[in-house]
Design a protein around this nucleic acid. Structure first.
Length: 573
DNA sequence: GCCGTTTTCGGCCCGACTGTTTTCAGTCG
């Protein structure tokens, strides 16, 4: 479902890369890069904006705005074409090799005629690179390793995989050496849906043993860099882990710096500069005297910049700084505010745990309500029948007295067929407390068909939640295509919640879509879609995605008290 | 190329590590 924004972002990033290779000006490429990110993260579809509105996008000025319009009109940009003519397209790929940037790529092209990755590989093999001015044997071997890494790169890791790795590292470092504090930061702390590398932060006055412990861990395949303040390793599974050591007094400033995002950091550092201050990982300083002002906690640093503390999941420079400045930063959903889970399975269908086991685990999470939503009959392989469903309801009702603090809800996950119908008629559907409905088949329908299909399901007065709305699986399956505006508008109109599926390889809806849907007044259900007791813990990823989508407890139906939830589930019936 | 509570020019976030070089450029996050 590409918005024009994605294409514009891509073309501006290409422009930035080509300028970085060709231009002496260091700042021009950065302008294009900043504009690209701003367009990519902009809330409105740029294809529908008037020229004056395009100019309002941050970091987009007259020149870039004109180029964007030219691109939207013509499909390309004349000046970009002339940049492209100067450099073979493969040179841009070379920048993606770790250790090679725009400057080295240009030298390789000019002096050795290296125009693509294959040329580069051949030049490495023949030993020609070490002879270049400014290059050497070490550089050549680094490029060789960079090429290897590029080849074996399996893509970015799921947040859950990176989290497990981070926690493993933290535990191993802690058990080997005394550290005052240790935690993960980076994109993992921001809970980006996939993680390129894991960032760890340690507070210690004695970094050397920390670095030794870090680089000596047995799952480390190779040490990429090792210094007193900073080291990087590559794990056997191919993930890079960076570790940074700072003094304990600087923990807050370092945490901000290492959590990012880069764009967010640049924003607040620019704010600091304007206030005559300087912000780095060691603290916030007076620019002139160099005197330290604050560094101990994130809260203090933000406060001194005139900002409230901003949750890590919001630090993407997608308007959070502006919102923080004018006091409109939302109090985003927390896991504590969630009162229940509305989408879970048992071994009656494809779950791994029994009803009793799931309830036992759920009750430990202190939920006020909990819905069991096994698959409905039309997902034939699950062999559900009306009788089995009703028998499960009986069992659930009998188990209720065991859980005086948790109301047990009987639900189902319906299948939305290609026409938008679901498994049962009104009479049977009426017997459930809650009904999730999801697309499980015919993913390849046209955009129009898929839009009609989902809208029709939402118009069903018994369908309460659309499960994993785009059905994507991260790194495995593309999302289905439907008209986002139409579906979001229909969700708001029909009183149907859209799911924020917390399963780590789904995370569906994703953050950008959540922001978009919220503008229509859509309500959401943050659910785990658990198929095992351990999956109930995945709620943290769903909450993170909701935070990244700027949702508050008012937007999320399973953060509501049961009475209010029940009213919503009636859909005005 | 963008931007402004030291505004229309002169800045542009900041620091660590590496390698090749004798003081720094390139890359990275």
């Amino acid at each position: 479902m590409p918005r024009a924004n994605d294409a514009v972002e891509a073309v501006l990033l290409e422009y930035a890369d080509l300028l970085a290779i060709l231009s002496e000006d260091r700042f021009k490429p950065r302008s294009y890069e900043k504009a690209a990110r701003a367009v990519g993260g902009y809330h409105a579809d740029i294809g529908t904006l008037e020229p004056a509105e395009i100019l309002k996008i941050p970091n987009v000025g007259k020149s870039i705005a004109e180029k964007i319009q030219e691109f939207l009109r013509e499909g390309t940009i004349e000046t970009l074409e002339s940049l492209r003519a100067k450099i073979p397209p493969g040179v841009r790929d070379i920048i993606a090799v770790p250790g090679v940037g725009p400057k080295k790529a240009m030298i390789l092209y000019q002096d050795l005629g290296i125009a693509n990755i294959d040329d580069l590989r051949a030049a490495v093999e023949s030993g020609r690179i070490a002879e270049l001015k400014g290059f050497g044997a070490r550089t050549e071997s680094n490029i060789r390793r960079g090429l290897e890494r590029l080849q074996q790169q399996t893509g970015r890791a799921l947040a859950s995989v990176a989290m497990d790795l981070a926690e493993d590292f933290i535990e191993r470092i802690r058990s080997n050496v005394d550290v005052e504090r240790i935690d993960y930061a980076g994109s993992l702390r921001r809970m980006v849906e996939t993680i390129g590398d894991v960032d760890l932060l340690v507070a210690s006055d004695d970094p050397v043993p920390v670095m030794d412990a870090f680089t000596g861990i047995d799952i480390v395949e190779r040490v990429l860099a090792k210094g007193e303040a900073k080291s990087s390793v590559l794990t056997r599974q191919g993930l890079q882990v960076d570790l940074r050591v700072v003094p304990a007094e600087a923990w807050g400033a370092a945490m901000i710096y290492f959590t990012g995002s880069k764009a967010h950091n640049i924003r607040i550092r620019e704010m600091a500069v304007r206030k005559g201050l300087k912000l780095n990982e060691y603290g916030l300083f007076d620019a002139k005297s160099g005197t330290l002002i604050v560094a101990q906690t994130e809260q203090e640093v933000y406060e001194r910049l005139g900002l409230p503390w901003i949750p890590p999941t919001m630090r993407e420079d997608r308007g959070e700084v502006e919102a923080a400045l004018d006091g409109s930063l939302p109090d985003v959903l927390t896991q504590k505010q969630l009162r229940g889970d509305l989408h879970t399975h048992t071994n009656l269908t494809d779950g791994l745990a029994s009803l009793e086991q799931m309830l036992e685990t759920a009750s430990a999470m202190k939920y006020a309500y909990y819905a069991v939503t096994d698959h409905a009959p039309n997902l034939f392989m699950q062999r559900m029948t009306d009788e089995k469903m009703l028998a499960q309801r009986e069992r659930l009702r009998k188990l209720q007295p065991k859980y005086p603090r948790m109301t047990l809800l009987h639900g189902t996950e319906l299948n939305i067929d290609p026409e938008g119908n679901v498994d049962w008629g009104p009479e049977f559907l009426d017997g459930f407390d809650v009904r999730v409905a999801s697309v499980h088949s015919m993913f390849g329908q046209s955009k129009d068909e898929m839009t009609r299909r989902i809208v029709r399901a939402m118009e069903n007065p018994y369908v309460n939640v659309i499960g994993h709305p785009t059905t994507r699986k991260i790194n495995q399956r593309q999302p289905v295509e439907f008209d986002l505006d139409e579906v979001f508008a229909a969700a708001a109109r029909t009183g149907t919640a859209l799911e924020v599926n917390a399963y780590p390889d789904r995370l569906d809806l994703k953050d950008e879509h959540i922001v978009w849907a919220k503008r229509y007044g859509v309500k959401f259900a943050v659910d785990t879609d658990s198929h095992a007791t351990t999956h109930l813990d995945h709620m943290r990823y769903g909450v993170a995605m909701a935070q990244r989508g700027w949702l508050t407890k008012d937007d999320v139906i399973n953060a509501w008290p049961l009475g209010k939830l029940r009213t919503f589930l009636r859909k005005g019936r």
